[in-house]
């Protein structure tokens, strides 16, 4: 007993626990921070209830045994039944839920149930003398310093300089944007190939079809590589000025990378005939349904894309293979600050 008392005294000395003695601010109840009056405690329902329900104790034990069974079943299933995911999940799930049941039941019916009341810790609100002392200590630390402002400005400059120095090496993480964005593998004479690498000939592209093509010899994964090739009835074309010869036999090529956010434009709405619907042929992106009218230079017909798909001029080589007749009509892919809306790409 004496030891405990000494312990308590020692703790108080070391941790400076003490009851606050400042007057209360809350008028609705007893003094703030003071131990609550007994009637409040009772009103709050402070109590402690002991006594385990024997049925509940049995229930807890049973639940724990179910958990044990589930755990061992898990091990068995892992070893034997090719570790079937569903059985494993049921075994471990049941085991865990059984433990949960045991614990909750134990807390509700077996172990003591108690409601207690205690005062709230005093934070800064009623410790003005303390705050003032701390503030005084802080300002005492700067006593005698004369040219405070000059020092502060100099420190600010140093901080900015070092801060910039800390951030700048992050730039090493990536290549400069530079001209990379504007460069694609397509240039005059580049042959079109399919995903398997074979040349794409004009005869393969029938009216109403859509083919994904790539520049021969280039990295397929480069964003500027994939294009979509479609064939339409030439008389229905309404291409922008200057592109009259970009679509031999009505075969069109557009970048497959959506100018909204960069998904592959992998839908082609190809109406069977004008009699069936008023919707014309269009490339559609599956992400946000940007719809590009292929007859009109892939202008945006619907959806959030802000720029048309860049078009690639095509021509047909002597052996029938499709080749590019220049670079794209504009930068490919999603827009970024300062990208030009239309303009030739570099190759």
């Amino acid at each position: 007993m004496q030891g405990l008392l000494r312990l308590w005294i020692a703790l108080k000395v070391l941790l400076r626990l003490r009851h606050p003695t400042t007057p209360p601010r809350d008028e609705t109840g007893p003094a703030y921070g003071v131990d609550p009056a007994p009637e409040t405690e009772a009103a709050a329902g402070a109590q402690r209830q002991t006594g385990a329900d024997p049925g509940a104790e049995l229930g807890v034990a049973a639940a724990l045994l179910v958990a044990a069974a589930g755990g061992f079943a898990f091990c068995l299933i892992y070893a034997l039944d090719h570790a079937d995911t569903q059985l494993l999940g049921v075994a471990i799930g049941v085991a865990l839920l059984a433990i949960a049941t045991a614990l909750i039941l134990a807390g509700a019916r077996v172990f003591p149930r108690e409601t207690a009341v205690e005062p709230r810790p005093v934070l800064a609100e009623h410790r003005e003398p303390e705050e003032t002392r701390v503030a005084d200590d802080v300002s005492a630390g700067a006593q005698g310093v004369t040219r405070r402002r000059m020092l502060l400005v100099a420190a600010g400059a140093a901080g900015t300089g070092l801060g910039a120095a800390a951030i700048v090496p992050l730039a090493s993480l990536g290549p400069g944007v530079g001209e990379t964005m504007d460069t694609t593998p397509w240039k005059q004479g580049t042959a079109l190939v399919t995903e398997s690498g074979t040349g794409l000939s004009a005869a393969d592209v029938v009216e109403g079809s859509f083919v994904t093509a790539f520049p021969q010899g280039a990295d397929m994964r480069e964003l500027g590589s994939p294009i979509v090739v479609v064939r339409v009835e030439p008389s229905t074309l309404r291409l922008p000025a200057g592109r009259a010869d970009w679509a031999p036999e009505g075969i069109l090529a557009y970048s497959k990378i959506c100018t909204h956010a960069g998904c592959a434009v992998s839908l082609y709405r190809s109406p069977l005939s004008p009699t069936t619907t008023s919707d014309g042929p269009a490339l559609v992106c599956p992400c946000h349904y940007s719809t590009f009218d292929v007859l009109d230079g892939a202008q945006v017909e619907f959806g959030p894309a802000g720029r048309p798909l860049p078009q690639l001029p095509l021509t047909i080589r002597a052996d029938g293979v499709l080749i590019a007749n220049g670079g794209f009509s504009g930068p490919i892919g999603p827009a970024w600050w300062s990208v030009r809306r239309e303009g030739p790409t570099r190759s």
Binding site: P24, D26, T28, G29, P30, Y32, G33, P36, T40, E41, A42, A43, A44, G45, A46, R113, E114, T115, A116, V117, E118, P119, R120
Partner: peptide, 12 residues
Amino acid sequence: PGRREDNVVGTP
């Protein structure tokens, strides 16, 4: 009942 701004009532 009995719950105020300056106390805490609950289960330990």
